[in-house]
Design a protein around this nucleic acid. Structure first.
Lengths: 196, 196, 196, 196
DNA sequence: AATGAATGAGCGTTCATTCAT
DNA sequence: TATGAATGAACGCTCATTCAT
């Protein structure tokens, strides 16, 4: 999904370019200085005037939400790409890693998202409705090809990874979970310890 | 004993009282408005001028660190108090609850602590070195009296509770952990399910 | 007098319509938000882009002056209309009322007019030269028909009404003046107090 | 009356100096650029930082009101000075001239005063209660000494002069009124034209 | 030592004006 | 020619920090 200004109708090319540049810049600045970074800094990073920021994102929360949506979109879009470039299980693994990285980056936004600002109300639902199906396709493909166990609920996976602690410890746990996915797969059944 | 002039005594007491008042005020204001609250607000809550705040805490991070240390101290001190007022296991339970409450309050400070400001460098070590022994005593006592299982590493407990999610869900998980502590205790062994 | 852009010869119909719409919009916005209202607001009221405003009125003072001239024109034009619809004295009365209303509306512009901006230099003269003759015709007609006293200088009337205080008190004073006009009329002479 | 900040108690010398300087600067800037002049300009004229302006006058209307009150005070204070430097009638004349000048200067503030801002609510009463007695003393003195007619209500005089038109025409009318004051005085009765 | 007045950098925001579309 | 996106100067205001009292 391409992020557009509210009135997508008759959007001029330069305006769309401004929005794209702005979102990219905001992402960078948010990562560097937090979501409370001065608007001027974001404008400067984007190479536009502050007025342009305010034109497209009258409130700071509008900008934050747009950045967040954009990254959700990017993450979901990555699923399709990975699906055609890798084996099903490898694609799933790559995507989960990417998703975890996305979550890690966004941890700073969590506070903003829970600020009660109504601008953020729709974000959790958007998160699930966008990333859920993306993951579902990857999981289904890997299951069908017998590369991972079939008793996995994509939503659970999404949620569990989201709750992983940040840093290396989280990465190790993600690796564990991915191994766990493969563990019960039909193709690996022979390797399972026998029950007595 | 060296006799000090009454004046010197009084001044030192005054200054210490100022600092205490300031830390108490800062704690209150940090809780209400976050660690970025205006210095004036803190000074006003403490009933002093802003100059006094800057005299004792030249940088905001000094004040934050001092508040944090003070609460760590308070939390550690509570261990001794609880130890003499309750049975070992009950004391441990009470203290863990208090500790969790402290952690819950501080969650806002986490971002500040990870800001890279060198003022905060020593805090994690201070945290561990102060609360670790405090908990260790409580645990040892409860283990010795056979009220909790003996295979518990105090540091793990400290760390695990710190990572608990905020809110009611965290409280429920803390209750579970406390029950788990009692579960393997010698005094409860009779209740353990039999091995077949 | 109809307001036209400098190159009246090549003036396209839609351009003239733009100007008319703009002046009407500016009048509305000036009345609502003062002469310092944002240009965007005026453009929006007129249903055009801001660029169009600047095309026709490069400086704000140009727009203000044009609005003012337009209202002077409208007021002067009303004289002819009233002259054919009413008895001479009634026409005069109606016009003075309308003129007073115009003045009342414009009171906000007074400050702008005295700002020293050379754009406004010609306005006072235009005011007099447009409204003076308009009133003169009405007065002459009423005098000729014997409905009002003959010793009235139109300019004095114009000036006096302009200085009337705003609000009801001004309306009452205007009524008084109009009565005074009729008082010395030949047709009312019988009612005049005798000189001894 | 000396203008002081709301909490006159414990006002530091530098603060009072700041206020005085600010009011003087504000008067100058208001006269030059109107009451909507940038705060920075006023601060700069006063040689202080903008923060100082906001400390003493949180809202612009506070500053406007204070300037106005200060000038009323100054005008009232001039009465005492003139009373001891001139003959009663001359003092009255000088003061009326000064008062008219003050009114002339303030004409720009009229709009602000009628803006409905509650900060200005008390100003009209203050105006009357301060200038009324000041004029009353001058009038009484001149009447007692037989230099002006006795049938003059000070308030009427205050009000009439306030309504005089600005500029030379107003000055001529003020002169007329002052002559009128002397005209009916006992000491001038002999000069009155005889009725035939 | 304590106070709080003063400073001024810096932020959010608006809006006149320009100019690419 | 008309549009409105982009610009950036300028404003109101806050508040960390300094320093005279």
């Amino acid at each position: 999904m391409v992020v557009k200004s509210p009135k997508a109708r008759a959007m001029r090319a330069d305006a769309q370019r401004s929005i794209d540049t702005l979102l990219e810049a905001a992402k960078t600045i948010f990562a560097k200085s937090g979501v409370d970074a001065p608007v001027r800094e974001i404008a400067s990073e984007a190479g536009v005037g502050v007025g342009t920021v305010y034109r497209h994102f009258p409130k700071r929360s509008d900008l934050i939400a747009a950045v967040f949506r954009r990254e959700i979109d990017g993450c979901a879009a990555a699923a399709s790409l990975l699906a055609v470039k890798h084996e099903p299980a490898a694609a799933l693994e790559s995507w989960l890693t990417r998703y975890a990285a996305f979550i890690g980056t966004k941890r700073g936004l969590a506070a903003a998202l829970h600020s009660g600002d109504p601008t953020f109300d729709a974000l959790p639902a958007y998160f699930e409705q966008t990333l859920g199906p993306a993951l579902e396709v990857l999981v289904a493909s890997a299951v069908t090809s017998g590369q991972i166990r079939p008793d996995i609920e994509p939503f659970d996976l999404l949620d569990a990874v989201r709750r992983l602690p940040p840093g290396e410890s989280g990465q190790r746990m993600l690796a564990l979970m991915i191994d766990g996915l493969r563990y019960g797969a039909p193709g690996h059944r022979a390797k399972r310890p026998k029950k007595t």
